[in-house]
Every structure is written in C-alpha cells, then in structure tokens.
Design a protein around this nucleic acid. Structure first.
Lengths: 259, 259
DNA sequence: CCTTTCCCGGCAACTAATCGACCGTGAGGA
DNA sequence: TCCTCACGGTCGATTAGTTGCCGGGAAAGG
C-alpha cells in the first residue's frame, strides 16, 4: 500500500534538485514519527571514503518504464537513486500485484538483500526517467568491513527498509481495503497536495489501476470506492484528477491512526 | 501470516537443544530457497569478540505469556533467543491482530530497529518459557564499529528480517485468505507434521484464533474454511487437532507457488 | 466439588470485494 | 482521417469474508 519515499539527500550523490514536496517519507505507516525519514546512507563518511565507495559503483540511466531489477532474478548489489522515481512492486504467480513504494532520490533500492547472492524479492521499474548508481554486492561487502561508518549506514538503511516493509505488512494485515484507500488519499494529499477552490488537489497522475496496486485491490473496486466517496462529498473526481474536500472524514474512515 | 523461524544455532549462545523439527525457517514465503535460513549473528566472530558482545548483554528469563517488548514502546536494543519461542505480532488501533512469526532459538527479535532510539514496530511475547539475552542498542552500536564482522552479521540478520517482512507483505497483498490458510497448513505440516493413519497430523496446538492471527482473518472464517476443507476430505479436524489428508489439494488451493 | 474461562462450532444477516465483460472517450500515431 | 490503445465508468453475478450471537464441552482453578 504505497510507502512513499521522499527526498532526503543522501551523501554527495547529486545535491540540488530536491524538488519533491513535503518532508515526509512513507505512505503507509501508522504514525510518521515512529519511522522517521530515510537515513542518509553515506552521510557519516569522510569525502575520501565517499569517493572510494562511489568509485566502485556503476552509473546507469533509465527511461520511464524500463526495468531496473526483477523479482527472482539474481541479485547483484543495490542501487542508489540519483534522480527520478522508482516503483518497487511484486507480482504473484496468479498475476496480482502489490506496490511497495515509489522511491525518490536519496534512497537505495534493490530488495532487502544488499550484498551479492540470493535473488531479488521485488521488481523495480523507472516511474520516470532515472539515474542510479549500482553498488555491486561483492565490493560493497569488502568496503563495509573496511569502513565502519559505511556498515553503520547500511544497517540504518536496512532498519529503515525494515520499517517500511513492516508498515506495509501491518496495514495489509489489519486494515480493510477501504481504510487503506482513505489512508492512501490522505498521504498523497500530503505529498502532492495543491490548493484548489474545492479543497486539495492531488497533483500527480495516478490511474485507478496504479492506486489499486498501491492498496492491493482491483481497479474496479477503487473506482467504486472513489465513487462512493464522491457521493458522500468526501472527494471530487474528474477523470484521474482527485480533489480531497473533507480530509476530516477521510481520517475517520481510515480508522484512527495518529499521523 | 506466520513466518516460522526455526532452529539455526547462532554463535555460541546455548548450543544443543536444537530439537525443533525440520530445517526450514520461514512460513509464509513463496519459495524457501529464495530466502534461506536465518543467518547466524555471531558465527564469524572470534571467541574473544563473541565473549565481548555477550558480556554487554543482559540475560532475561520469561514465562509463557510474558511480554518481551510492546509496539510503540521505546526501543532499547535487540534480544537474542537462547531457548523457547517468541511470538511477534502487531495489533491495529481497532484491535485486529496479525502475527509475523514465531521465532525460535538462534534468531534475534526486537523490531527492524537494532540500535537505540525509535519505538518498537511489533510486540513480542513468550509463546513458551524463554531465555533471551538483551543487547542494548548503545553498546551494540559501538561494538559494531569496532568489530567489522559483527556489523556484517547484523547486516545479514537485517537482510533476513527484511525478507521475512517482504514475504509477509507480499502474501498479504496478493493472496486471498483461503490461499494463505492453505499455505499455512502446508507449512505447519512441514514443521510439526507427524505420521498418522489418515495423513499427517499437525502436532502443535494452535487454536483457531491463533491461526486466524497468522493468516490475518477472523476466527470464524478459519472455522468455516477448515470445515469446508473437511467436507472436501482435504483435512480432518477434531477439536484443535488438524490432520492433513490431501496435501496435493492444498498445494492446488494456495495457487501455485514453488516451495 | 463447583465455578469460571477458554475454545470449538454453528447460524443468520450483511457487506466488502472480485470477476468478467462492455462501452464511451480522449490522446496519439500513421 | 481513421485506427488503436489506455483509461474511466458501469453492470450483474458471484464469492469471500465479517459481525454478532448463542451454546456446549473441556480444562483450569479454587
């Protein structure tokens, strides 16, 4: 159900261009504070160490829609996002799909695994044009033994990922789809909200299918639910534009969760 | 939906007593191999280093039912399980509950967080009498910077946890409750199966409510589903005893997933 | 011994959600 | 210009799953 990772700048990878909105980072968590933002992977390194790490990396550029890694494929290290947006998701053998998150600059992606070995648990595709740096597992492992602060950074990064996965599992395990949808809308509002005469417009084009994948439902059910919300004057939809009119009612619908 | 962590022995913490069945470790994963067993946290340490780590720990003994940590409470390091079983779970604000796993000896528990700071994402209670060693976060952090192999061990441990959380989220996000139940039964059969005239008896007393929490459903629905399975001769139930007669049909019900 | 508590079991009513299909529309490409 | 394609919207049928309730039996505890 969409964890939404935002814009903390990591280490020295491409500063500037921090134009993603808001400071929050996750979408499907019960209360933001409990998780905190994504920790900067290489912040604690000296410039020299940082350079050493980046030197062992390979830069890749992806166009929207291109695949970065696929579930089941052999794992070979992690990818630091320099720019763009990466959607991380999973497809079941029967074709049902669940989106973990859209990750922004400053995060790394590539499954819970970080070193070499094993297979990818998730798939990642570029949701917009992207630049990433691949840190191969083997090199990363030796670097981690040599640079204590890199190891600490990795541990903190993994801890953060763990919280994301946990939050997703908890929402999926204990909330109804409707609650999840309400939650998602509130979060999207925070992230992409723009003032509008009727309320707050979610200024990002997500199709009903996109939303369905984020909350783990079918496209039709999302359509129906949105329609019902519109009937209750909670939101206003016009062809893939969603305006949230009554955030208070949404809060109520998602079943209390401090935010 | 129950990840079921088994009996890999970690480091030097209480060897022997590895009487948990089978070698597999997780319950709700699509294919076992892709995850692998829980990595030994301190295997790579020298005896001296190991002692150093354990020295900073505090031993705790818990009776069945006692709480080890609670979601939302302040986090203070991780717990290495020496003996017994710890159930890790989450309860939503509305009271719905989901069980992550029953962790056995050799694993550590205590949320995705490992160092100090933050709050617990999950709760942990002793499912049987337990002995654990608490490694306080602060000390763990300094130790990790000093002993590279401890940091590597932590990274591998977190990676493993990440896979557990991911597997849970993926199952919850893309499988129906019925499929999850079939999956769970097959796994419990592997873990606790005992030969029986009619098939394989699951030799562990889980109530319907326990099972419901593992698959993320209501107790009643578990009762109904089990009854249906019994009607189809797939299983045989008599008061909290479950005998699996047709594992092949269960495989089919869970919707293909190599195991 | 009795009481209490927990757990299985079942029932009825209801809502949530899925599935498969079809249509209209708007955008883009040839 | 027409064609195609992706998307929103909708419908009907069906299933999955919930909620709330009651009753009985086994186990635990005093």
């Amino acid at each position: 159900m969409l964890l939404h990772a935002a814009n903390a700048i990591s280490g020295s990878v491409t500063p500037g261009t921090a134009k993603t909105p808001g400071g929050t980072s996750l979408l499907l968590t019960e209360n933001q504070q409990a998780i905190g933002g994504p920790p900067p992977l290489m912040d604690k390194l000296t410039p020299r160490e940082r350079e050493l790490v980046l030197k062992s990396g390979r830069r890749k550029v992806l166009n929207r829609g291109q695949t970065l890694f696929s579930q089941g494929a052999k794992h070979d290290g992690i990818y630091l996002i320099e720019s763009g947006r990466v959607r991380v998701f999973y497809i079941s053998p029967l074709g049902r799909e669940i989106t973990l998150a859209y990750w922004h600059v400053g995060n790394f992606v590539g499954g819970p695994e970080v070193f070499e070995g094993g297979t990818h648990q998730w798939s990642g595709v570029a949701a917009s044009n992207c630049a990433v740096v691949q840190l191969p597992g083997r090199e990363l492992r030796t670097l981690a033994t040599e640079i204590p602060n890199l190891a600490i950074g990795l541990i903190e990064g993994l801890t953060f990922k763990g919280k994301c996965y946990s939050a997703l599992a908890q929402m999926l395990g204990t909330r109804s789809i409707t609650q999840r949808l309400a939650h998602l809308l509130l979060h999207l509002m925070d992230l992409y909200g723009v003032e509008d005469p009727d309320g707050t417009l979610i200024a990002a084009a997500f199709t009903h299918a996109d939303i369905a994948h984020m909350v783990g439902a079918t496209r039709q059910w999302v359509t129906i639910s949105l329609k019902r919300m519109q009937d209750k004057q909670v939101v206003l939809t016009k062809r893939s534009q969603i305006v949230v009119c009554r955030p208070d009612l949404l809060e109520e619908m998602r079943g209390q969760a401090a935010d």
